[in-house]
């Protein structure tokens, strides 16, 4: 099993990556009414309108940062959840089971998210 010294160091590093990338994501997706991003939302309207989603999907920057953000956020979030669950003192057997479940579901969601980022980049082009 990986030691907490390593896992926690990566937890902090992932937190910093999330701060930058999720900050950008939140700004683009939710603060568009005050800060107009015409180049990122060329069709106008909502940032989640298909035309805008497709336009951003064409830019290589987005699929790359999506996958980076996805990995960082999955690791940060699931390690945080593991910490909380472990603090409930579930016992050694249950701890191993929790770790396996979190790793498997994390990898599953990483594959799904990466596939959708790559596939929609292909689709948009």
């Amino acid at each position: 099993m990986m030691r907490d010294q390593k896992l926690w160091s990566w937890h902090v590093a992932a937190g910093i990556v999330i701060l930058l990338l999720l900050g950008l994501h939140m700004t683009i997706m939710h603060l568009d009414a005050t800060l107009k991003f015409t180049s990122l939302n060329p069709a106008g309207g909502e940032p989640i309108d298909w035309a805008n989603v497709a336009a951003r999907g064409k830019m290589l920057f987005f699929p790359i940062t999506y996958v980076l953000l996805l990995s960082a956020a999955l690791f940060h979030g699931l390690y945080g959840l593991r910490n909380i669950l472990f603090e409930l003192d579930p016992g050694a057997g249950l701890k191993s089971a929790i770790s396996v479940i979190l790793i498997v579901s994390g990898l599953g969601l990483l594959v799904l998210g990466t596939w959708s980022a790559v596939a929609s980049f292909d689709l948009a082009r």
Binding site: R3, D4, Q5, L7, E87
Partner: peptide, 13 residues
């Protein structure tokens, strides 16, 4: 001490 502190009994919680 790192042998203990780097694991679950360390300062990480």
């Amino acid at each position: 001490r790192r042998a203990v502190l780097g694991g679950e009994r360390g300062p990480w919680r």
